[in-house]
Each structure stands twice: as structure tokens, then as C-alpha cells.
Amino acid sequence: MSLFSFQIPFMPEQASKFALEVDLFYIALWLITIGVTIGIVIAIFVFMVKYKRRHNGEIPDQIEGHMMLEILWSVIPFIICIGIFAWGAKIYYQMYSEPKESLEIFVTGKQWMWRAQHPDGQREINTLHVPVGRRVKLTMTSEDVLHAYFIPAFRTKTDVVPGRYTTTWFEATKPGTYHIFCAEYCGTQHSGMIGTVTAMEPGEYQAWLGGGTNEPPAIVGERLFSSLACNTCHTADGKGRGPKLTELYGKQVKLNNGSSVTFDDTYIRESILDPAAKVVENYQVIMPSFRGQISEEQIGQVIAYLKSIGPKDGDAAAKPAATAAAKPAAAKPAPAATK
């Protein structure tokens, strides 16, 4: 696709796989808009000049309406609209279908900064370094109010909502530095909650990752798991007072009210902050809430740890979302290995 990415005036740079299609769509819509507007304006001008009132007493011949015309100008716009809908829905579907294999970065929004943590442990604030040619999935949450992670050059934007995880993904196609904006109003320094995303060649990205001395989140998460004494109840042998959490990530869990829930990021987060909300079958509500004792970023690390001890790839019960980059701790992600 880099074949087509040339700089078009009035458009931000095209630096992701979505950019070209979004731009084509946008141009197509402007062509329709301009066509319709010019058509109507010309009609108005012609009628105005041609049918100018000649004298004060004139009454033009009356036309009640025309059924055929009404049907035409209802049905034709309707068909066009359905076309626009379909095209828009197709792009949206791509944007919201999580990629199978991706680099997962955990992003936290906070008044007024963006924190990101890479699977290798590298952290950054208000910047984001991503490799070109590799799908990058952002899992995001907010520590306070609503934010939105907006990268114009990639044509992606997703609200960052406190109390839940939202995800977005993109594949950068062109090395360079692009803007990150917060697009959902978040208070006084909203316009200062900006940053840059740097798309790098995979090699450079690896070098950049190596520059830090940070531990991978899964390792930090493992330490948290014992320092917060999670492991005293959630023992690996399954005989503790809490359910066993190994080999569980991405699987269905039966609850004490008869329903079941997927053991995923959202459920883990909820159970840490509000343990009574959904209790696993045959277990008591004895776990205290960790609200206030653990930050969003640390929750992300615990999740990364639980993911790393989750089921192995190819496990029949595992959902696709869970298999994606399931073991960030186990091995350095090998770029381009997917193709």
C-alpha cells in the first residue's frame, strides 16, 4: 500500500494501513457532497434568473407535486446512503476486529498525560514507539476521567474510559513521528494532553526497546502477585481459598449465581477492585477489595502475569483474543515471524 501513499493536500499524513481507505472514502463523500451542492445551487440560480418576478400581480401556474420525482429523490439518496453505510461499516469492522497476532501495548490515560508500557517492560510518557509493518494493539484505560487516544496520521481514535478497558489497533506503514491528541475533553489541560507516536523500522524498534532496563510487565505482575499476597489464596495447586488462576486466562468460568463469565482483562480488573461482584462457583466472598492499593498500571501488570501463566497456544478453550501475544514474558516478540 505504500505504493499509493502520497501526500494529498488537506489531509494528514497517511501512515497506517487504514489511512488510505479512510481517505478514499472521505474523498468519495466530498465528491458526492460537492456534486449535490453544486447541482442544487445551479438549479436555484437558474430558477432565480429565469423565473424572476416580472410584475406585481403575477401568479405562476401551480404545481402540486410529482409522485415519480418524489419517489426518485427518496430512493436514489437512499441507495447512495446504504452504499455509504456499507463502506463505513466495512472499515469500522476492520478497525474493531482485533488482530490475531499483535504487539500489545498497555496505555493509561491520566489528567493530563499518556503512559504506555510495552510487553518488554519499556515505559514511556506522552510518546509511543511502534514498529512499522507490525500490528499494534493498544489496551487502554483511564485513571480518572474520559480521554480519547487519537492518532490522526493513523486515522484511529478510541475513547479511554475509566473502569473498563477499550482497545484499538493499527499497523504503521511509514516511519516517522506523528501526533497523539486527547480527543475527549478531560479538563483544564486537555489541549496539553498531546504527544507523539514514532513509527520505526523493526530493527530500530528492537534497539529502542533494548535501551531501557525495565522488566517486562508480566515479571512485575508476578512480583505484585506475591507482594499483595494474592498467591496465599490463589495457589497453583487449586487447593487454596481462592480459585486457581493458572491455565485460566481466556477460559469460561462458572459463577455462583449460575451464569458464567470469560476470565479476561475486564473480569480480572473487576475482581481485583470489586471481588464480590462476580464470585466463582463454590467459593466464598472473602477476598478484600484492592481499590486504592493498586494502580491501573499495576492491574495491567497483574493481568499480563496471569496471561503469561495462561493456557498454551492451541488450547481448544482459549479464545483468539487470549492467544494474541499470550506470553510476553516467555520470549522476546519476534517481528515478522507472523508472515
Partner: peptide, 8 residues
Amino acid sequence: PPTQYHGQ
């Protein structure tokens, strides 16, 4: 109510 349900 039972402690763990305070918030709810």
C-alpha cells in the same frame, strides 16, 4: 448490609 456489598 453484608460488608462486601457496600458499594453495590
